[in-house]
Design a protein around this nucleic acid. Structure first.
Lengths: 162, 162
DNA sequence: ACTGTTTATGTTATTACATAACAGATACCG
DNA sequence: CGGTATCTGTTATGTAATAACATAAACAGT
């Protein structure tokens, strides 16, 4: 996880394990509430993503999945697809990576939702922000375009790295 | 180039070759004006991207590069990076593809600029629209984040496909 | 409980996307 | 013309993602 600034920022675990457990339980409840199954590989995948405070590559999850040796890619990619559908994680397109959703920290159930991200090119950190998009909505309807999903990612330098 | 709707929309050449030539000459001029070289592989890459009215995959360019046989990936990826720096094409992150810039149709020289895209999941077409992003700019400065580059992509259905 | 159905996982293999590293060629500048 | 910077060619490899099919677990109806 080496970045443009030349630093390494590996394994910055800001969430303690208690906090992670709480979010895993919350995720469990959210799945039950929707009649979906929170299975072992899905839970493990979510755990690994929650344990980083920055977007995580699919193959990092694959490598760390088992204590001894990697998981098979489809196992993890299927889990990632599920978690994304449930609104528990987001895919960061410009990084080919995944980050835990920060949009329902208060425990509210949320529909899969669009979100914007501030992504630091130096330390790799990610901040999720909520924005409305009146201009592009307007441009879309002016073109007769029906928007299903919006990707909005700002790349740059976070406060700490500037 | 098969899409969600089940149709194939291969090789929809909406720009006639005269129009493409005009844009290639324009690109040449733009490079000269900035002291950059518009070399053969760069021109060929741009030509192939201009010949589609939808985002083109890097390996499609690679495959079509020579009349008989493919180019080597680095040749094309280098050309793509150059053309993007020059603001002649844009990378579409959510598609891993590249599309010609539609933002300077009047011949004005343009700095590399952010742009938003309406991307049809059915026919694969792309429309570039100009939007300002007051909300995310505001959120970024509130967080002390310095934005360098913004990706804004709306996926959905275009007018024709609805 | 049995059985059919649905949903999820395991496994092998392959496909798609992208870059590192170095050698050779071409443009540009004094 | 010779040195330097830039670009291209080539080989090899690294990284990201999915197809296809086999197996297993959950669940609903009888």
């Amino acid at each position: 996880m080496s970045h443009a600034c030349g630093h390494d920022h590996d394994h910055v675990h800001t969430l303690d394990s208690g906090r992670i457990d709480a979010r895993l339980s919350e995720a469990r409840r959210l799945c039950e509430a929707q009649g979906e199954r929170m299975t072992a590989p899905r839970l493990r995948t979510l755990e690994l993503i929650l344990s980083e405070n920055a977007p995580v590559k699919a193959y990092d999850v694959i490598d760390r999945f088992h204590p001894d040796g990697a998981a098979k890619p489809p196992t993890v990619y299927r889990a990632l697809a599920f978690l994304e559908q449930m609104g528990l994680i987001h895919r960061i397109e410009s990084l080919n990576a995944f980050v835990a959703c920060q949009g329902h920290a208060d425990g509210k159930a949320v529909q899969p939702h669009a979100a914007a991200f501030l992504l630091c090119d130096c330390c790799g950190s990610s901040e999720e922000v909520a924005v409305s998009l009146p201009e592009i909505d307007q441009q879309a309807s002016a073109s007769g375009f029906e928007t299903r999903r919006v990707t909005l990612e700002a790349r740059g330098l976070c406060k700490a790295c500037r």
